[in-house]
Design a protein around this nucleic acid. Sequence first.
DNA 1: CTAGAATCTAGACCCGGCTCTAGATCAACC
DNA 2: GGTTGATCTAGAGCCGGGTCTAGATTCTAG
Lengths: 150, 150
Amino acid sequence: MSLSIGQVAERTGLSVHALRFYEREGLFVNPVRRGPSGRRIYSEDDVDWLTVCIILRASGMPLPVLSRYADLVREGAGTEEERLTLMREHQARVTTQIGRLTESLDLIRFKVAVYEDLVDQGAAAHQCHAPSPAAGEEGTPLLRQEAVVE
Amino acid sequence: MSLSIGQVAERTGLSVHALRFYEREGLFVNPVRRGPSGRRIYSEDDVDWLTVCIILRASGMPLPVLSRYADLVREGAGTEEERLTLMREHQARVTTQIGRLTESLDLIRFKVAVYEDLVDQGAAAHQCHAPSPAAGEEGTPLLRQEAVVE
DNA sequence: CTAGAATCTAGACCCGGCTCTAGATCAACC
DNA sequence: GGTTGATCTAGAGCCGGGTCTAGATTCTAG
């Protein structure tokens, strides 16, 4: 089954511009076929490959690495070790990135909790017409609540 | 305790360029103080705030959002609801991002496993001088192994 | 007093990753 | 046989997030 660039764009969610750009960047394993009038003709395999590319991109693989990977796949047998290395390196990057995000999430959750408390207190104070008696030590609350969580 | 821009750069890991850039972008809660000769003087609070900024940046908060957050903190009491909203939105973004990365990791792990098998097979074949008898159906292995994992 | 390091401002530059434009060609429908 | 829409190429433009440069202070040590 052969597809036009517009159809591939629709199926993959990439723009036609991005598809041509990816081609220039060498991300395709096989050179994209052309019709008699020079128009691009994509196969289902191309779409499958693009799907993989999209996932790898979404996990932060840079275009040059993706291009290198495409090169290796194109070369075929004998490049498996390097592909393995490349994938393992990417796996490590993604894993550490998830770790970083998860750590950041700790701070973010803490901030959310702090502001939830403050907003609740504010609402309560507004209800009982008293200036937040349970607030405890105020001091410089707007600075203190910005303190690092560590 | 007051710090020079170089000292802050050293403590935070940001470059002096980045520090001045962040200031222009309005990321500081308080305008950075200046010495008599016009040089920047940072406080420990500035460093603490920067530490928070670095974590939020690491989790993908764009500079304009960070700047908006700094604005709200500067304005002080009465902006807690908006700060809560902002933080919750960021929390949601980070959570979905972790989800995306974790999904991607599935594919990456799968690829790693496939290449590990291939490399092992290749090594075994090399040892016993037989062309990988356990490989089963070969067909178009270099294409099939690139198939989407879903 | 002077050399070298740090800082200042304003603005140019870079990089990654697209996105958009212009002008031409081609396909399809009425 | 026009008109409309999709596609083509080459190249410019954009956005985010810094980075770097130039030229002028200013600080610090010997």
